[in-house]
């Protein structure tokens, strides 16, 4: 057991080391400009990752704006409203969504969603940030539903009875007792959903449009964007080993790695704090 735990820590560390080593050339060449630079252009051999970082965060933020309310509402509905007999069926159907390969989501995005986004908003092409966000939202919902559902189901029956016996309605009980009690788990599910969404590659590169520019205005979801993951996947095959481009792609990997690490640690802290508060 200890060995396994140690191994996974060593593995994590080695991975970080490996990515950092490969990305070192780009980081040394551009310094902070690698993170804050606005131009990502292979022809000019200029690598500034800001549009890509922004693209990733924008698409994920859009996805969460849809997925969090939908996912949390679904979790509440499944755990608190659905009769017991239907609960497992619906839950497994939602979890089935998570097992669909992301290429399939990409297909649906390209063939079904993108044309509709284009016609609704009068765009020449529907592969824009909005489409990517919607596809990602559907992919993130199962994570949010299952993790927040678990914490909602773990809210003690005694709490709910206390509220109901005081004359609270079902909705008041959910709003004032169930959600506050499950708050940390719900937050953790959002963080994990974030991790799931920001790491998604194939589906996003199929529908995001892949233009390495910060949209104008920055909140314009009808512009195409390029994400960290999509750039790595698209360019890796063409980049010759040892070139600056090759190193820059590893630099992107490092940025992605650090973002997910921060978000996961935050989720971890939130969950622990929640558990302590409930127990004590």
């Amino acid at each position: 057991m200890l060995l396994c735990a140690l191994l996974s820590i060593i593995f994590l560390f080695l991975m970080l080391l490996f990515i950092a080593r490969e990305g070192m050339q780009a980081l040394l060449t551009f310094g902070m400009d690698f993170v804050t630079g606005h131009v990502w252009d292979t022809n000019l051999n200029l690598y500034g990752a800001l549009p890509l970082i922004y693209g990733s965060l924008m698409v994920v933020a859009g996805a969460l704006m849809v997925a969090v309310p939908l996912g949390v509402a679904t979790a509440i509905f499944v755990e608190e409203v659905l009769p017991f007999s239907l609960r497992d069926l619906i839950k497994s159907l939602i979890e089935l969504l998570a097992s669909i390969p992301s290429v399939i989501y990409g297909f649906i995005g390209v063939l079904f969603l993108a044309p509709r986004v284009a016609s609704i908003f009068g765009l020449s092409s529907g592969t824009v940030a909005l489409t990517a966000s919607l596809v990602l939202a559907v992919m993130t919902v199962p994570t949010i539903v299952s993790i927040s559902g678990e914490t909602i189901a773990a809210v003690p029956k005694e709490y709910k009875e206390a509220a109901l016996a005081l004359g609270a309605t079902k909705w008041q009980t959910v709003k004032d007792v169930v959600i506050p009690t499950a708050k940390s788990g719900i937050l953790a599910s959002v963080m994990l959903g974030f991790g799931r969404a920001i790491g998604e590659t194939v589906a996003v590169l199929m529908v995001a449009g892949n233009v390495a520019m910060i949209p104008t205005p920055p909140w314009n979801f009808l512009s195409p964007v390029y994400t960290l993951t999509a750039v790595i996947a698209m360019q890796m095959g063409e980049a010759a080993i040892g070139t600056l481009e090759y190193s820059a792609l590893f630099g992107l990997g490092l940025i992605l790695f650090i973002i997910t690490l921060i978000v996961n640690s935050l989720a971890d802290i939130l969950v622990k704090r929640g558990v302590k508060r409930l127990g004590g």
Partner: peptide, 20 residues
């Protein structure tokens, strides 16, 4: 029924304060 439960208070077997 909510007004009824206001008029008829209840205390349970195991103390069940809310996490507040």
């Amino acid at each position: 029924v909510y007004e009824l439960r206001r008029r008829v208070g209840m205390v349970f077997q195991k103390p069940n304060p809310l996490p507040k």
